[in-house]
Write a protein that binds this DNA or RNA. Structure first.
Lengths: 186, 186
DNA sequence: GGGATGATGTCAGGGTGTGACATCACGGTA
DNA sequence: TACCGTGATGTCACACCCTGACATCATCCC
């Protein structure tokens, strides 16, 4: 693997996750990640804006899936229907094959405050993107904000449950149950 | 004001907020904050764990208020009642006298991604503290998580509305309206 | 007066992230 | 075959963030 070997970005991501799990996020330096990927520290920062970001790639795809779910929802969908459609549309990301990888990645995130902080920000970005999509479908304020927060809540809890050690259900099944529990709250 | 002048912590907070508004968060160095407060950079880090934290002080008080609201709720309160009680209990923090200060502070936060990121983390910490309080009151999972997320959602939106330019209602009044809108969602 | 205590100052240093410039591989073109 | 962009990567310098170690200073108490 030399200077122009393809897949530099993926090599950096893999090296970073491995090192974060082996040594911890803080104990890992960007120079070490780059060395394992046979690149330099400067190149790392050309692919990722900072050390945390290397583990949060593909967030845009998730946002797009949420928004697409809203766009594809039927004409007469209520705000809650739209929010549920957004979450449901993201289900295809979380296949059984990805579950082990998601568990490893989440373990790394959970072990460091800085990574949890970035994760919180990403959830917030996702929530506000969903709010914007609901507004585009004519949902007014504050309903758009409350409905999108409710959707993100279900998404967050469903993901946590999906990667739990003894969980075998699909994320879609988990989400259905959670939406029902959420409606029962009111 | 010399070396042992009292109020070092408060001087640092005030200097930081002023500089963040004047020059922006990124363009402000910790050394500048310390110099304006007539202290050194090292002392800054003895009071605040990092540069972002200086603007997020008193979070513990908010968490305590939320938890106290849950503890003080009547015996037969539903999960939703408990969540609403938690939010309502925090209302005393947001008096009319504090509103201008809250507006300035929020303007600084909104102008920087790093500060918004920390704010997201703080909301998450608040949410999980509330979840723990609900569990202590016998609320099971996933209801405890969903109910606390719903409460945080109302809290977040109510605060944003409370500091809006043309808003004159108390935050408690805003929260009552939002909880009603939230119940109507289901 | 003197010691204990706690806050602050001083100094050194590793890690983060960025700008500026050089270098290298590859594809197109004459 | 030789040349020339174009883009990715490497090299270097540097400001800033944050921390450990040790020194200094003000205050309280005996």
């Amino acid at each position: 693997m030399g200077r122009w070997e393809p897949g530099a970005r993926e090599r950096l991501q893999l090296a970073a996750l491995e090192l974060f799990i082996e040594d911890g996020f803080e104990a890992t330096t960007v120079a070490e990640i780059a060395r394992r990927a046979e690149l330099t520290e400067r190149t790392f920062y050309r692919h990722f804006s900072d050390k945390r970001e290397v583990i949060f790639d593909g967030q845009d795809l998730l946002v797009d899936a949420f928004v697409a779910g809203v766009v594809a929802a039927p004409e007469d969908a209520s705000p809650r229907d739209l929010a549920e459609a957004a979450v449901a549309a993201s289900g295809s990301f979380f296949t059984d094959e990805r579950r082990p990888w998601s568990r490893r990645r989440q373990a790394a995130i959970d072990s460091d405050t800085g990574l949890r902080e970035r994760e919180s920000l990403k959830m917030g970005v996702l929530a506000r993107a969903l709010t914007a999509a609901l507004r585009d479908r004519g949902v007014g304020d504050p309903t758009a904000e409350l409905a999108s927060d409710a959707a993100i809540s279900v998404f967050r809890v469903s993901f946590a449950q999906w990667i739990a050690a003894d969980e075998t259900r699909s994320i879609g099944d988990i989400q259905v149950a959670l939406f029902a529990a959420q409606r029962a709250l009111a």
